[in-house]
Write a protein that binds this DNA or RNA. Structure first.
Lengths: 244, 244
DNA sequence: CGACGCATTGATTGGATTCAACTAAGGTGG
DNA sequence: CCACCTTAGTTGAATCCAATCAATGCGTCG
């Protein structure tokens, strides 16, 4: 049951009751598939629904007049595409599927209701946007003050950590559907330079990456190369929001 | 009355009642000054209070092991430093005063109470963090896919728009207490290159910048140079949250 | 098969960094 | 009140990381 992705995610921080879990499963009734490379939401749209990624990878991106694209976030199962449109008028960026995706279309009134009914759920959602903000800050630092080698290493560490958090890493291997161009658009590099950098990471025995499967061969080494400190992901063992 | 900065800011989006305004003014009782260049909050801290900038400029920043610093946000009057620490355990970055600042130390329980008592205030705070997220996304794009010239122009446009929003621009002039090094740390450049770029913007008659006063001599021209589109700031004329 | 998308490699260019020196402005203390 | 010191801004020259341009390999899918 793919719906459980959200629940598993929120349970990382919030101690959800069975009622909460039922409610969450309930609002994910409208589930649709989206093929790779297609926009889930386009810039300028005023989405009628909230979108939640249940399966596959997507990316938040912006395209500049000159044609350059910058990816500002990767979305993996359990991530909301647009928790903000209830409050803000229109999308100031697009969301594209990077792999075939399964997306839940949630009535935004359902979210409103849910957050009123359960303060635990409200807290959990609030928490998730704050983590998103922390990730964004880290991307600014990463793309701003690290060189290509550290940058690629860092984003691989991040995605490894995030995928692990939702149980999608087995044996230090994970699904990484990105093309080198997409990885370049996320790290503010060119695909050519991304290619050379990946080769270096491979040559140094840190990773293995082929046909969209990333194997971390030396996690400590990769983290060292990246200067990776997972604090910003706010990975918790224990839920923040206790019972009641 | 500097406390009114917050109220004016929140009224941009929310149609606050007089009671709301009184409540907001009430929680800003503990006001302190902070000299320039001093940390308001340091990385790793677990702040006991929420901090709100009432006067002056501050910056969110991260320092890498090598010593490189990246500023990830500028904070101006009405901005919260740490709306997240109620939810997250510790600061994953520091906040430094860029000019002499006046900061309100707000009991986080007061915020909790306030957001429960007034859904308008809750909405307004929620909105403000979503705008922050939008600004952060724009910084990733700006520092990632624009060259130095566009980048500096863009950040000047942004700060002009934000200062204008809170009534701190008169005659296209605004207080800009940044050193060139701080501007460089925000745009992921070096202070040397920032210097040359500023000179170009001056030479082209777009701006005038001396002794911490920025004059926009050609707003349209600067925005064109930057590729600036203010949508992401979600500047509203009409409040989003209607009465009741 | 041919075509297209993606990965790879080489050669060259260029924007920004680095290193270094120097000026200007402001504050401090003898 | 001026010598001194510090901090910020400015300029020049050399260097470098990553971009650009261009060609090729390679797999897969219609």
């Amino acid at each position: 049951m793919p719906e459980h992705t959200l629940i598993r995610r929120l349970k990382i921080v919030a101690d959800l009751s069975e009622t909460d879990e039922r409610r969450l499963a309930d609002i994910c009734r409208d589930v649709r598939d989206c093929p790779a490379r297609q926009d889930i939401i386009s810039e300028g749209e005023r989405p009628q629904h909230l979108h939640l990624v249940l399966r596959g990878w997507a990316a938040r991106y912006k395209v500049l007049p000159g044609g350059a694209r910058q990816i500002v976030a990767f979305l993996i199962p359990g991530d909301f595409c647009d928790l903000h449109v209830t409050v803000l008028e229109e999308m100031d960026h697009g969301i594209v599927a990077l792999s075939p995706c399964t997306v839940a279309y949630i009535d935004s009134r359902d979210i409103d209701r849910l957050t009123l009914e359960s303060s635990r759920i409200a807290r959990a959602l609030w928490w998730s946007t704050l983590v998103d903000e922390g990730v964004l800050r880290t991307w600014v630092v990463n793309n701003g003050r690290r060189d290509a080698y550290e940058r690629i290493a860092h984003i691989l560490c991040e995605m490894h950590a995030r995928m692990k958090m939702i149980g999608l890493v087995a044996d230090e291997r994970l699904y990484l559907p990105l093309t080198q161009e997409e990885l370049a658009d996320a790290t503010s590099l060119t695909s050519v330079h991304t290619n050379r950098t990946l080769q270096r990471l491979r040559a140094e025995g840190l990773i293995d990456l082929k046909s969209h499967v990333l194997t971390i061969k030396d996690l400590k080494g990769l983290q060292r190369a990246a200067g990776f400190d997972p604090t910003y992901l706010h990975i918790r063992r224990r839920p923040l929001v206790a019972a009641a």
